[in-house]
Design a protein around this nucleic acid. Structure first.
Lengths: 266, 266
DNA sequence: AGAAATAATTACATTATGCAACATAAACGG
DNA sequence: CCGTTTATGTTGCATAATGTAATTATTTCT
């Protein structure tokens, strides 16, 4: 994907800790997790050394230690964290598929939600993006990436989504010219519509669909056929719906009739 | 991989140190790190020589020495995370003192910065607050508290502060009626003025001082006497300055003459 | 719940690196 | 030609990083 212009392999000089640290953090940013054994093999050093590296990085607050490795450090700990675990593989696949729709230099809107957070992780690979988001976690994640500009849409923070919502956020959306928007949703109804839990959320997503160059809904398969109370107005203007596997045939057909393309992540 | 357009190999004349230095810096720019042994092999000189080269370049501020080699000199790398550890006790004390100024039900503005983050932690004890902040970490922290409403001021995110900054944030400040504002600052100058690093920051803080019912600057003792480039306009309208120990007498007197009270945290 | 497997911890051995002092050799200037 | 300067090499020892192995926790699987 990104051409590797590094002259020296991180394995080349065994004794340079910062090189390992750089590679570890890079992997962490890409994958979300690293394993001790896999790192020890890669660098050809002992597990103990990797443990010491991880401990050091953890003390600096750059990652979280877990049994057998480390994960991204996220100040995020809430109901939100639990949801992130659910269907994590599916969400990662959707995230990668979404990132394939993005080119370096684009202006990307990222909605709140765990699936869009997965997309944000995948987008760490891209350069020179301008990210525009309502999600606190996504803003925090992306602003640490040096070639990325981040705009946070302000407003009252919704406790469940950990994202801004309401009049201020709606207002702020109008200030941006967005190339691609990635949106979450509450469910994908049997008649091929993306639906939402809250009025505010539906309205916010509707505006993004209308104003973004291209808008995609990211929906993992647990959302198929789920009925939530609000339809998202102008949903049919969306460019596509990205899913982790093909939904029931009825939904596919309904979706196709309305317009948005169906994109199934590998 | 990288085409070498140089006419002379840096190894060609062993005795020319500047050639080595150029090559070292080039490698550093490409890889982020260089190893002593690998350089010694490459130039076919002793490790001690390379060590002397690196020492010289380090004294010039062109790189950072590490065990076994050198890395890019990056004063800003992980700046925020590192700062959080510094003076943690002092900041916690200031945070508690700040929280004592707050009553349940108030509308509180929290600026970005590590000291205000400490105040946010202390404010978790309070009930029914409305928090208004530019800091992503503070927003994330406070929004998990069930009896607290959080408003995030939107805008472009500053990588170092991990907080919104700029026109959108300035604009958003005007929408709020704030009871108490807790602000950070870059330094407390010898003539009793709070100063700042950036124009945007100074302007933002100035507005808060003017519009909040009461504004307090939270400054740990490492800021005493420190000179940063921008004064914060209308600083003297602030209700007080909260510190972890009494500053030099000259500063105390200057401060008193201007108006703000000096509050020393226990 | 209990056993097997995997990982973390601890303590100590080994190796690599850092540093300082001194040795060497080429370059320079009179 | 000599003495001086400058850069580099060498040596010995202190220090830091890494490896190893025994022990104790955790997880995982049944």
């Amino acid at each position: 994907m990104t051409a590797d212009i590094r002259m020296t392999d991180p394995r080349s000089t065994r004794a340079l800790a910062p090189r390992r640290h750089g590679e570890i953090l890079r992997r962490l940013a890409a994958d979300g997790t690293v394993g001790i054994t896999e790192l020890a093999d890669f660098f050809d050093v002992s597990r103990q050394t990797i443990r010491r590296d991880l401990k050091l990085l953890a003390d600096r607050g750059q990652l979280d230690l877990v049994h057998g490795g480390a994960t991204l450090f996220e100040p995020t700990e809430a109901a939100f964290t639990a949801r992130r675990e659910e269907n994590a593989d599916a969400k990662a696949a959707i995230g990668r598929a979404a990132a394939d729709l993005v080119r370096d230099g684009m202006v990307v809107f990222l909605d709140s939600g765990t699936t869009t957070l997965a997309a944000a992780h995948a987008l760490l690979e891209c350069k020179n993006l301008t990210i525009c988001t309502t999600s606190l976690s996504i803003a925090l994640l992306m602003c640490r990436q040096s070639l990325t500009r981040v705009h946070m849409l302000g407003g009252e923070i919704d406790r469940d989504e950990e994202a801004s919502i309401g009049v201020d956020a709606l207002e702020a959306i109008n200030h941006f010219r967005v190339d691609v928007a990635f949106l979450g949703g509450g469910g994908l109804s049997p008649d091929g519509e993306v639906t939402d839990f809250t009025r505010n959320g539906a309205e916010q997503r509707s505006r993004m669909v209308a104003t973004a160059g291209k808008a995609y809904f990211l929906l993992d398969s647990s959302k198929f056929g789920r009925l939530t109370p609000l339809r998202i107005p102008r949903f049919e203007l969306a460019a596509g719906v990205v899913v982790d596997r093909r939904p029931p045939e009825a939904i596919c057909e309904a979706l196709e009739r309305k317009g948005p393309a169906l994109i199934v992540a590998a």
